[in-house]
């Protein structure tokens, strides 16, 4: 049974950023994937069973207001995220991220190695392999998006369905804004040249990939593993799509817990 987390707010560049917190134990941060988190998810509950889970929103993603609108360069984004992590109390903590959030987590670990403990990356954005390009998540017919993001489209639909009492006008605008914020970082190819910085990542890291990821090809796991300097453990999540944490919450949380407890 999913229960609600505590919610607080930090401010970066004059915009409020929602921070969720739940659970007890050592702290782990989580940065959400494409589309963001309009609601708390079963995966976070799983993780909160043995960890204090802190989930700051990214600018422009649900809970991140319109903070993306003042971020014009990649440096702007990375500095905003670094500030958010610090204000959320995540400096030095273990850090996980999915999809676009994983790309940001990898960047932080590369640029400020001292601020990240162990690193967990679920199918990060940021690389571009010409021989096997990622799908274009911004050129899709509306009905194709759920099946692109999740192996089980119903999971994405449930995540994005307005809850009882939600503002019927602002809710859909917030979901579009999440896609816009991702576009602001990654348009048009998803290539932020993260490749150049991967070798700066020294943190021990776990690389998770949905077996049926239709956005970021599974072959990208190798590119990350080869590029990162720190020791990498790679695990493919059976039956999961791009947002593996949504498709397979128990399995993904289980892999993370196993990785974190193994020394």
């Amino acid at each position: 049974m999913t229960t609600e987390p505590e919610t607080s707010t930090v401010e970066v560049n004059g915009f409020p950023i929602r921070v969720w917190r739940k659970g007890t134990g050592p702290t782990i941060g989580f940065l959400a994937g494409f589309g963001g988190l309009p609601r708390w998810t079963p995966f976070l509950d799983e993780l909160a069973q043995s960890r204090t889970v802190i989930v700051p929103s990214l600018p422009g993603f649900p809970g991140g207001d319109r903070g993306h609108t003042v971020l014009d360069s990649h440096l702007d984004w990375l500095l905003a995220i670094r500030q958010i992590l610090d204000l959320a109390g995540l400096s030095g903590a273990d850090l996980a991220g999915s999809s676009v959030g994983a790309s940001m987590a990898a960047e932080v670990a590369a640029l400020w190695p001292g601020t990240v403990g162990k690193l967990i990356l679920i199918a990060p954005f940021g690389l571009y392999d010409e021989t096997n390009p990622p799908a274009d998540p911004w050129a899709q017919r509306g009905d194709a998006v759920p099946g692109l993001m999740c192996a089980d489209p119903e999971i994405w639909k449930a995540l994005k369905t307005p809850p009882e009492g939600a503002n019927s006008i602002e809710w859909p605008i917030e979901q579009v804004r999440a896609n816009e914020a991702a576009a602001r970082i990654f348009w048009p190819l998803g290539n932020t040249r993260l490749e150049k910085r991967l070798h700066l990542i020294k943190a021990p890291n776990l690389l998770l990939w949905g077996e049926n990821d239709k956005v970021m090809p599974l072959s990208y796991a190798d590119l990350f593993a080869k590029g990162i300097s720190g020791a990498t453990t790679t695990r493919v999540i059976a039956g999961a799509g791009h947002l593996a944490d949504l498709d397979k919450p128990v399995e993904v949380a289980g892999e993370i817990q196993a990785f974190l407890s193994a020394g």
């Binding site: 911004w138 050129a139 899709q140 017919r141 509306g142 194709a144 579009v176 804004r177 896609n179 816009e180 991702a182 576009a183 602001r184």
Partner: peptide, 10 residues
Amino acid sequence: VDPKWATPPG
């Protein structure tokens, strides 16, 4: 025109 080109977010 393919509708997938119609609504880039933002």
